[in-house]
């Protein structure tokens, strides 16, 4: 068994690793190289050392502002998406009537693309703001909360399904035993249910965290960064830098590399922390 596995190993692994190499590793390394160059097309680039990074972090105030906006957005939306999704999951595992209908309805926004959702919400939010004589471009705060609402609308259904799966895996006896021992509903939630769904929590926070950080379509469609660039998040800022001015492609590329490092660092830290809290049943 072991020997034949070894013999067949390349057959199974090679096609995939080749695809991975061509579609991911090579472009990624090439991208890192480009961040140290000045280029218009990827074909001919001239090496400029660290100057793109210096520009991105010092001369260009947009990057740090976008980073701060993104961090605020991520904190708010990770908390709100997960709390609300978990509450929905709790309610929809109690066997109330129409559970399946509700689950489907809540999940549906996730099937709509980000650009479309962005434009739909722009119409809705502007429709409301018009009553106050302004629109979403008036103040970055409107854009911020608009993005939070949009993100919640889109992600809650998906996270809810993951939490439901987690909740349904808990043997009901454990909650019954706790109840017989005299634990109240809140105590059961805190000490029995939550620890047992912590693997779902890990997945959900990971997904919401990285998705919020990398948000692009929704940002592009909802506010486009307006007013000015005050509501642009990191991904949109990178896009604008890359395409917005002659000769700034390298700076955009440098920002993209920094962006990758930030997202990777946050995701690793988050995974490590929440893994620790997981328990085996």
């Amino acid at each position: 068994m072991g020997r034949s596995l070894k013999r067949w190993f390349p057959v199974f692994v090679l096609p995939l690793s080749l695809a991975f190499l061509i579609a991911f590793v090579i472009p990624f390394l090439f991208g890192i190289y480009l961040s140290f160059t000045r280029f218009t097309t990827v074909g001919d680039a001239s090496f400029v050392g660290l100057s793109n990074y210096v520009t991105a972090l010092t001369k260009d105030e947009n990057f740090l502002r976008a980073l701060w906006f993104t961090v605020k957005f991520t904190v708010v939306s990770v908390i709100s998406v997960n709390v609300i999704a978990f509450l929905f999951a709790l309610i929809l595992t109690r066997g109330i009537r129409g559970t399946n209908l509700f689950r489907t309805v809540f999940f549906m926004p996730n099937l709509i693309g980000g650009i479309v959702l962005g434009y739909i919400w722009q119409l809705i939010i502007n429709g409301v703001l018009l009553r106050f004589g302004v629109d979403i471009t008036y103040d970055a705060t409107y854009g911020f909360w608009g993005l939070v609402v949009l993100m919640n609308w889109q992600m809650i259904g998906y996270m809810m399904i993951i939490y439901i799966a987690g909740l349904q895996n808990i043997p009901p006896e454990m909650q019954e035993v706790a109840a017989i021992d005299g634990a109240g509903p809140l105590q059961i939630l805190r000490h029995v249910t939550l620890p047992l769904v912590s693997s779902s929590i890990t997945i959900c926070t990971f997904l919401t965290l990285t998705n919020s950080f990398k948000l692009f379509d929704q940002n592009y469609a909802l506010t486009g960064g307006a007013p000015g660039r005050e509501s642009s998040m990191l991904a949109l800022d990178i896009f604008d830098t890359f395409y917005g001015a002659v000769g700034s492609e390298g700076v955009g590329q440098a920002k993209a590399v920094l962006f990758f490092l930030i997202v990777a660092a946050i995701a690793l830290v988050q995974l490590r922390i929440s893994r620790k809290r997981e328990v085996d049943v």
Binding site: T137, Y138, D139, A226, P227, G228, D240, G244, V246, S248
Partner: peptide, 21 residues
């Protein structure tokens, strides 16, 4: 005129002027 970033920022400033900010 300089590239798209210049035009975008000038346009955004015009909007903010119109909105009174």
């Amino acid at each position: 005129f300089p590239g798209q970033n210049f035009k975008k920022d000038f346009g955004a400033a015009l909007l903010q002027y119109v909105q009174g900010t």
